[in-house]
Design a protein around this nucleic acid. Structure first.
Lengths: 335, 335
DNA sequence: TCGGGGGCTGGAACCGGTTCCACAAAACTA
DNA sequence: TAGTTTTGTGGAACCGGTTCCAGCCCCCGA
């Protein structure tokens, strides 16, 4: 593998000059430049980026910490990141987190070791100690789908979204509205809890009393959602509409309805939350939280932090959109 | 940021000794080791991986070159890679390819510049020149879902898969079988072409003449598949079964059937190819090509090449599985 | 008592770039 | 024509680790 010194020798110049040519420094005469370029060509020389990284202190690499791609929403956000990064000079190192230990070890080492110029954290909220570590590090950090007052973040207003979803059902004439989600207390970002709050607020604003029997939470995943939905649907006085904490769970609700012979949307309206592609196939009404866009915005915020090194963290809220498809319908008393 | 020299000074030892402690070299006395560890702790020192990379020549990083995550099959393969990599000491840099220019630039630079210890290429077949460059580089390369005789690869037998799919339809009594796919001539891996060959072979073996009217190809994507399927289904003598080149296209066929009021599977059997998760929602019969597994196998092969540096490329074929779900049915003359 | 060998340790060179600084030659300025 | 700037260039130090090699000390055997 030829080095910069081989090139210098071959072109009969100093290594500083070769370096200048490589970095398009204008203070090199035309003749010298050509001689160097010729030598580079003859030797098929490529500069070693590791050496460059060591001496400049820049790696031109951004680290993305995110959970294993088990949930479609992570993939969708990553797609956005990928798209936004393509237009920049930065590469992306993926740190996939399988569990809390791994997460904590990345959270501990990454801000200290100069391996990356900036860090994007997706759907993994740091605790106070960890956030402090990120905030005091010289490498900027941006959270996507997570919040901490010490760090910049891209946020979704889950309370508002929960309200939006519930209001849609209320506007359709539903009064018996179930809420189904993963456990509200979670060590990760408690989006389900916020959505639940939006649900409660919407009910309250419309003078609909909250019925604890219509609220169920449990382990995440389609199959568990199906089980929970069955519980709701076999109540003596079952809900006429169900708001599921995310799209995958909403699909679980559809599974349950199918198995119980409950017709959607005639006998049951179902609304989800996320706006993942799977919703298309199932024709699911949902709240679109612009997952793809969140990745793009995260990268933009990180890049601008890289250039400006702002002292105070920034926050950006993404908009939400009600996506009416085929699983919600006006409630008919008649039935 | 403290360096190894700061630690050495604080612990009153030489830098070599600190380095030995960092690398668990046994020839350090217990006392010295403790003194060094104490200094490391007091200074909150973390070794700089870039400097280590430069001096050892190892980056502990693998490069993954793959197309933007536009197709579910890429995501599924990447999931497998992610899973397999988690058990190793390697990190993963993602080089996402949006177009041919970007692909070629990665293909050109990556094998030369020591940025990664090994390269995994997913669904992007190199041409002869590029393959030669990879083969002669000192960093090992493995192809997943692509083939070149000079490089190790993880392969799917698309001809066999195409035969399997077609035979399934034939076994169900179908004789008028359509084949719909993206263009057969493509600069990328011509899997559609191989699947088409399997289709032809199966017909031949069962003495069914090939009817060019039943063969259609065009741009990729669900919407285009829908258009093409409509053409097939509005023929004077339409096929009773359609084999689509991949699952997304098969879903497009389902869209077309729905719009034309053609009942699946009563009036039309549809089979896809891939085994992506989207197939679950649509209850699609398909050929499962074990995408997730392909990522895992790719990583395993690459890691073993990293350790053994084999001179000749290796090849591994993944198995295929017919996944019978709800979109195919026995053909009834009666109709 | 002396020589040899092993256990620890530190200095210096090295990995391959970038960049500060010094300096020669050329190009202005008066 | 002498003095001052400008332009182009090379040497050496530096980034922060690893590792070769030399050397010290101690213990052991003769």
């Amino acid at each position: 593998m030829p080095t910069i010194r081989d090139v210098a020798k071959r072109a009969n110049v100093g290594i500083a000059t070769v370096s200048r040519v490589l970095n398009n420094n204008p203070s090199v005469s035309e003749d010298t430049r050509n001689a160097v370029l010729a030598a580079i060509n003859e030797l098929d020389y490529t500069p070693n980026p590791i050496a460059r990284q060591l001496s400049t202190g820049r790696t031109l690499t951004l680290g993305v910490i995110l959970p294993y791609l088990t949930m479609p929403s992570y993939v969708e956000r990553l797609r956005g990141v990928q798209h936004a990064l393509a237009e920049t000079e930065y590469n992306m190192v993926l740190f996939s987190v399988g569990g809390p230990t791994e997460r904590d070890s990345y959270f501990k080492d990454l801000p200290r070791n100069n391996l990356v110029d900036g860090i994007l954290i997706i759907s993994l909220p740091p605790n106070d100690t960890q956030a402090e570590r990120f905030a005091s590090a010289e490498v900027p950090t941006v959270l996507v789908d997570a919040h901490h007052s010490r760090l910049s973040c891209i946020l979704t207003d889950d309370v508002k979204g929960g309200k939006l979803a519930t209001q849609h059902l209320i506007n359709l004439g539903h009064r018996k509205i179930g809420f189904l989600s993963e456990f509200l207390e979670t060590p990760f970002h408690p989006s389900a809890y916020y959505r639940y709050q939006g649900y409660r607020k919407a009910l309250e604003e419309h003078g609909i009393p909250f019925d604890p029997a219509y609220h169920i939470s449990g382990e995440r995943g389609r199959t568990n959602a199906k089980k929970m939905a069955k519980q709701l649907l076999t109540l003596d006085d079952p809900p006429t509409a169900i708001f599921a904490g995310n799209d995958i769970q909403a699909i679980g609700v559809l599974d349950a309805a199918m198995e119980l012979g409950v017709n959607v949307p005639d006998d049951l309206s179902v609304i989800g939350f996320d706006g993942i592609r799977d919703g298309e196939y199932t024709n699911l009404t949902t709240i679109d939280q612009h997952l793809y866009q969140s990745g793009i915005e995260g990268v933009h915020m990180l890049i601008s932090a890289l250039e400006a090194h702002p002292k105070t963290p920034r926050e950006k809220r993404l908009s939400l959109e009600l996506l009416v498809r085929g699983t919600t319908q006006r409630f008919r008393t008649q039935k």
